[in-house]
Amino acid sequence: MDFVLIERNETGYLLDPAPYLAALKSFASRLPAGARRFATDPDHYDFRSERCVKDLRLREIIVSSTGGAISARATFAFNDIHPEILCISYREVSTCHVSQDPEGVLGPVQLDEIRPGDSGCVHEIQLIGGTILVTCADLDATWRRAPTS
Score class of each variant (00 low, 15 high):
P19S: 03
A22V: 14
K25D: 07
S26Q: 09
S26D: 12
S26Y: 07
S26G: 05
F27H: 14
R30H: 09
L31W: 02
L31Y: 09
P32L: 10
G34S: 06
G34P: 06
A35H: 01
T40F: 01
P42R: 04
D43E: 06
D43N: 10
D43W: 00
H44N: 14
F47R: 13
R48V: 00
R48F: 04
V53T: 04
K54G: 07
K54N: 14
L56Y: 09
L56T: 10
R57L: 10
L58S: 01
I61N: 08
I62P: 01
I62E: 11
V63N: 00
V63K: 12
S64N: 11
S64Q: 10
S65W: 00
G67S: 04
G67M: 10
G68D: 07
A69N: 10
A69V: 14
I70Q: 03
I70C: 08
I70L: 07
R73V: 10
A74Y: 02
D80H: 14
D80T: 13
H82N: 11
H82T: 13
L86Y: 01
I88T: 13
I88P: 02
Y90T: 03
Y90V: 00
R91T: 02
R91K: 13
E92P: 01
T95Q: 11
T95G: 00
H97R: 12
V98R: 10
V98D: 05
S99C: 12
D101M: 05
P102Y: 09
P102K: 07
P102F: 08
L106Q: 10
Q110V: 07
L111T: 04
E113H: 07
P116Q: 08
G117C: 11
G117A: 14
D118K: 12
S119T: 12
S119Q: 11
H123K: 09
L127Y: 15
I128T: 11
G129Y: 01
G130L: 07
T131N: 10
L133Y: 02
L139I: 11
D140R: 02
T142Q: 15
W143M: 09
R144Q: 13
R144I: 07
A146R: 15
A146K: 12
P147L: 11
T148W: 08
T148C: 12
